[in-house]
């Protein structure tokens, strides 16, 4: 069993949504995460703050700090989930009905490399 990180990119809300529409969106995400959680595969999830960030680069050994986030707004990571799965195929199967696919953005899946930590 491996660990996978699902990043949600560029899925910011369209402005002016009604309360009922917002509740529908939340309900969809809730349905999806509940499904993963019930299968015992959800390790966690967090939202990242959208309005701030720092990018630190080393320049001749000294840190140079700029305000982030570093990417274009349509690529900003809004948040992530950490899940457990046997393979990429299984993760992709779990993502078939992911509500993030209904938005304008994309989901990025990366497997956590556990090299050396497992038998």
């Amino acid at each position: 069993m491996g660990k996978f990180l699902i990043l949600s990119r560029g899925n910011a809300l369209t402005p002016g949504m009604s309360p009922a529409e917002m509740q529908r969106i939340i309900q969809k995400y809730r349905d999806w995460t509940e499904g993963v959680a019930r299968a015992g595969r959800l390790l966690g999830g967090e939202k990242l703050r959208a309005d701030e960030g720092r990018v630190v680069r080393g320049r001749q050994g000294r840190p140079v700090i700029t305000d982030g986030p570093y990417t274009e707004s349509k690529e900003i990571v809004g948040g992530f989930w950490l899940i457990e799965a046997a393979s990429y195929d299984e993760v992709l199967g779990m993502m078939k009905d992911h509500p993030g696919l209904e938005g304008p953005g994309a989901l990025e899946v990366r497997q956590i490399d556990e090299l050396g930590r497992r038998d």
């Binding site: 949600s8 917002m22 969106i25 939340i26 995400y29 995460t33 939202k47 809004g78 948040g79 989930w81």
Partner: peptide
Amino acid sequence: ALVKAVEAWPYQGV
């Protein structure tokens, strides 16, 4: 406030 919920709850849970 509602927008904050839509931004946070999908990841943090309700």
